[in-house]
């Protein structure tokens, strides 16, 4: 999952980005409104965490202009918690909001929920055959046994599961799994896929040669 975090306070930006990276997200960052708008319109993020008070272009304007071209889910960060501010945010097209100061666990939970809902999967645990994907604990079980996956492997499984029965192209995988700091080689995706197949079974992921991958279950 690839998310964009927009926040003008450098320390907060760093902490939020680090937390989300720990969770296995690919995280891009932006420190002002213009940069945020540029990145959010160029890339297909799974979610955007957007601060309201930003230099150059405030959060509301970023949201408004982004909504003209993208339907990416947006989680607003705001220090203003009056009802008027919340209503304004939700009306402007925000999908959820968190009031500063916030608990990181709440931010993570809301972000997970946002991404699931956007992918059309409301439940936190998704079952495919005998494989269970727990998006909260970031765990994958086969039957009753826990399958140990690396962070990238898990992210890849989650991406495919959230888009089950739909073709996921290699480009989409690159876009969603690796942030601007990664400098991965293309064949790495194949390595991850083959590792996942080893752990969850060959038939878990189907290859559409030349197009991408799909979970058909």
């Amino acid at each position: 999952m690839r998310v964009l975090v927009v926040e003008d306070e450098p320390d907060l930006l760093r902490v939020v980005a680090a937390t989300l990276r720990d969770d296995g997200y690919a995280v891009d960052t932006a420190a002002d409104g213009e940069e945020a708008l540029f990145k959010a319109t160029v890339w297909d993020y799974d979610a955007v965490v957007l601060d309201v008070m930003l230099p150059k272009l405030d959060g509301w304007s970023v949201l408004q202009r982004m909504r003209a071209v993208k339907r990416t889910p947006v989680l607003m960060l705001t220090a203003r918690d009056t009802v008027g501010d919340r209503v304004r945010g939700l009306d402007a097209g925000a999908d959820d909001y968190v009031v500063k100061p916030f608990a990181l666990s709440e931010l993570r939970a809301r972000l997970r929920a946002l991404i699931r809902r956007a992918a059309g999967q409301a439940a936190a645990v998704i079952e495919i055959g005998d494989v269970q994907v727990d998006t909260v604990g970031k765990l994958v079980k086969r039957g009753d046994t826990l399958v140990p996956l690396t962070a990238t492997e898990y992210a890849l499984v989650e991406l495919l599961v959230l888009h089950r029965q739909k073709l996921v192209t290699r480009t989409t995988i690159y876009d969603h799994l690796f942030d601007e700091q990664d400098d991965s080689l293309s064949n790495l995706v194949d390595v991850h896929i083959s590792n996942i197949r080893k752990k969850l079974g060959r038939e878990f992921i189907t290859t559409r040669r030349g197009l991408g991958y799909v979970i058909e279950g």
């Binding site: 907060l12 902490v15 500063k100």
Partner: peptide, 16 residues
């Protein structure tokens, strides 16, 4: 707002 932002930094940094 000005007070909440550094507070958010402290709280989230500690949590992380």
């Amino acid at each position: 707002h000005e007070l909440r932002t550094p507070l958010a930094v402290i709280m989230s940094q500690i949590e992380l």
